[in-house]
């Protein structure tokens, strides 16, 4: 074989039309069963997205069991209830339950990552997550606190450690993923985003100031309405900024992480553009609003299609030689009950 370094794109063939039926039946049954069906709904949704995704002719599959998901959701629901109501009973109790929640959050995230990856497969081999629990406490407790204390200066570092933990801790069969994305790249992304946000807020603030001055100079009664209008404008601007900047950041982070990811000798490539995800996010939102939510399944499929189409694998040699992990990890699948947070690993 001469040219072995050809990028193989990930492809997604799901259609919004097919997903619509699954989505609406899921929604109806979830409501009718007071949320209990949501676990089965999730499995059907995951099957739809996983099995429509393929790499080099082989599909992906999801093996999560509805009962495990239901258990996880029940625990999450109870935790949230405890947190909600303890604050109402006494502020002290609220603080205690918040601290407790913070203390178990990393453990939950660790379990959630393990659950998701152990239940994903490709070519008959399971993925796995081998990141340690100790590191989970660094990534989901220590670093967020450090980022807050440093007034956001450490935020990009936190995001970088989080992604490296998530991706670098993953494995496919016996082969481990490696990820060592450079810290500098994360700082560049978030600095760019912060500058863009500040610029947008400055322009918005100037417009707002002008509007307010106009209002005051006319009449005091009018000024209140002008202020309300300007406030609404600012809120709308903020929303657009978030919608634009959020996908921009996500796109660049996805690029940095995937372009640095290795699986044994194989590499990956990700080419998400900065503008396209923002365009998709905004048009999706408009579509969802104008169809009173009915566009939602189409929006999901559209975004997934784009995100997956940007990723390709650059294999070194054939893909037939991965081996299954012989360890007892797979038997532990049943106990992975804590998939609390819908968490996108971007595969």
């Amino acid at each position: 074989m001469e040219d072995r370094r050809i990028a193989i794109p990930v492809s997604f063939t799901g259609s919004g039309k097919d997903y619509f039926g699954i989505w609406i039946v899921n929604l109806l049954l979830t409501i009718v069963t007071f949320g209990i069906y949501s676990a089965w709904a999730k499995v059907r949704r995951m099957h739809f997205f996983y099995r429509h995704t393929s790499l080099a002719g082989a599909g992906f599959d999801y093996h999560g069991e509805p009962f495990s998901i239901l258990k996880g959701r029940t625990i999450a629901f109870l935790l949230l209830m405890v947190y909600q109501f303890s604050g109402g009973i006494s502020p002290m109790l609220g603080v205690v339950s918040l601290l407790l929640l913070m203390a178990i959050f990393p453990w939950l995230m660790h379990r959630s990552l393990r659950f998701r990856l152990h239940n994903s497969s490709h070519r008959g081999l399971r993925f796995a997550f081998r990141g340690s629990l100790g590191e989970a406490y660094v990534v989901f407790l220590a670093l967020p606190l450090a980022a807050a204390v440093s007034l956001g200066l450490l935020f990009p570092l936190w995001m970088r450690q989080f992604k490296v933990y998530q991706y670098g801790g993953s494995a496919f069969g016996r082969s481990d993923f490696e990820c060592d994305a450079p810290v500098g790249a994360f700082y560049r992304i978030y600095l760019g985003a912060a500058l863009a946000l500040v610029a947008m807020l400055l322009v918005g603030g100037l417009l707002l100031g002008q509007e307010a001055l106009n209002g005051i100079s006319l009449q005091s009664r009018v000024s209140r309405e002008a202020m309300a209008g300007a406030g609404l404008l600012l809120l709308f601007g903020f929303l657009v900024a978030l919608l634009g900047v959020g996908p921009f950041v996500a796109a660049h982070v996805q690029n940095v992480v995937w372009n640095d990811l290795r699986l044994g000798p194989h590499r990956f490539e990700c080419r998400v553009s900065g503008r396209r995800p923002a365009f998709i996010a905004i048009t999706n939102l408009v579509g969802v609003i104008f169809t009173l939510g009915l566009y939602r399944p189409f929006a999901e499929v559209r975004l997934m299609k784009y995100r997956l189409a940007c990723i390709s694998m650059i294999p070194a040699g054939d893909l037939d030689s991965f081996l299954a992990d012989s360890g007892g990890d797979l038997s532990a699948v049943g106990e992975e009950s804590a998939e609390m947070f819908d968490f996108d690993i971007g595969l």
Binding site: K17, F48, H52
Partner: peptide, 11 residues
């Protein structure tokens, strides 16, 4: 046998 899912291959 996996359920029908639009155009996805069945498992």
């Amino acid at each position: 046998v996996s359920e029908r899912l639009g155009s996805a291959p069945r498992v």
